[in-house]
Simulated assay, not measured.
Amino acid sequence: MFDDITDVPGIRVGHDTNLEAGTGCTVVLCETPAVGGVDVRGGAPATRETDLLHPLCMVDEVNAVLLTGGSAFGLDAASGVVRYLEERGVGYDTGVVRVPIVPAAAIFDLPFGSATIRPDSASGYQACKSAETATGPLEQGTIGGGTGATVGKMLGPDFAMKGGVGSASQELIGGIIVGAIVLVNALGDIIDLQTQQVVAGTRNAAGKSSATNNPFGNTTIAVIATNATLTKAEATKVAQMAHDGMAHVIRPAHTMFDGDTVFTLALGDKTSGIQHDTATAAQHVSTLGAAAAHTLARAIVKAVRQASELHNIPAASSLL
């Protein structure tokens, strides 16, 4: 176990990073189609294919999820993921062609590095290629979609600290694994679960006014993955509960200036034929949701602790 999302069987992760521009993207690939769910809580989301994950919609398989920088521009990187999967014959079979199902979400990192260089189709494709050769523990911190992430921007970017990519996992009874990966780019501060102290956040800004600072530059986006078997409705509930993990360690979270979004990917055997009564199914989903919240909270803290200073924005590690 690496204590990251790749501990979930069938999950691979790849990054594409542009340190100079301060941006990048991260892809979560599913070796077998996953049942997907999503819950969007923030007031300023930049997303793709989230409606498709609604339990009332037909398609119930997901082939990958993209987490990217570049705001709405960066969603173009999803087309590179689609191209990569199509070349390998992966996607929903429509009878005439297989259509890769790739939901995506973006963070707003445009003020960091370059506002005119963003992840594109080539970036998404390269992230998939890097997932092919990735071995060992997942690289975290200032990499991929978290390259330009920052936190603690209540008084504007001049007083922010570095965010980044974080990941964690937890094994439950019966061999069920819940993993999380997150891009932490929050308006709020990041709080340690145990000590309740700020790990990374707004730096000392005594005597400064926030009245003229631009608050647009946030959003925390995440993927929860599990080897459990879930329906689309159940996967959506797990995503909903996982947001509690954000609220535990990001203060404030889910503001009108954040596009906080959580996806769920359930890779359990959909043909197992296991039937649960209503109470047992509810207990199963609730347990997974609680584990997802705790795992996501740990991943968020890991993201800022493993981030490194970039473009003169300090990281928690550089202040130790």
Rank of each mutant, 00 (worst) to 15 (best):
D4S: 06
G10T: 09
I11W: 02
H15N: 04
N18C: 06
A21L: 03
G22S: 12
C25D: 02
V27A: 03
V27E: 02
T32V: 13
V35S: 06
G37L: 05
V38M: 06
V38C: 12
G42Q: 05
G43Q: 07
P45F: 07
T50P: 15
D51N: 15
L53K: 00
P55Q: 05
P55Y: 09
V62D: 01
A64T: 07
L66V: 01
A72Y: 11
G74S: 05
G74R: 00
S79K: 11
E87K: 11
Y92T: 10
V97P: 00
V97H: 12
V99S: 08
I101V: 15
P111N: 06
F112Q: 13
G113C: 10
S114G: 14
I117N: 12
I117E: 15
R118V: 15
P119D: 13
C128W: 00
S130L: 05
T142F: 13
G148E: 12
A149G: 09
T150C: 14
L155H: 15
D158L: 06
G163P: 07
G164T: 03
V165N: 09
S169L: 04
E171P: 03
G175Y: 09
V182W: 15
A186I: 01
G188V: 03
D189A: 01
L193W: 03
Q196N: 08
V198T: 15
A200S: 15
T202A: 11
N204Y: 12
A205K: 13
G207L: 09
S209A: 14
S209P: 12
F216L: 10
T220M: 04
L230D: 09
T231Q: 00
K232S: 03
A235D: 07
V238Y: 11
M241V: 00
M246G: 04
M246H: 03
H248V: 02
T255G: 06
G268M: 03
G273F: 08
Q275N: 06
A281N: 11
Q283T: 06
S286A: 11
T287G: 13
A291Q: 05
A292E: 01
A292I: 02
A297S: 13
R298C: 14
V301G: 01
V301N: 12
K302R: 11
R305L: 15
R305S: 13
Q306I: 02
S308K: 02
E309I: 08
H311Q: 09
H311T: 02
P314E: 02
A315F: 04
A316F: 02
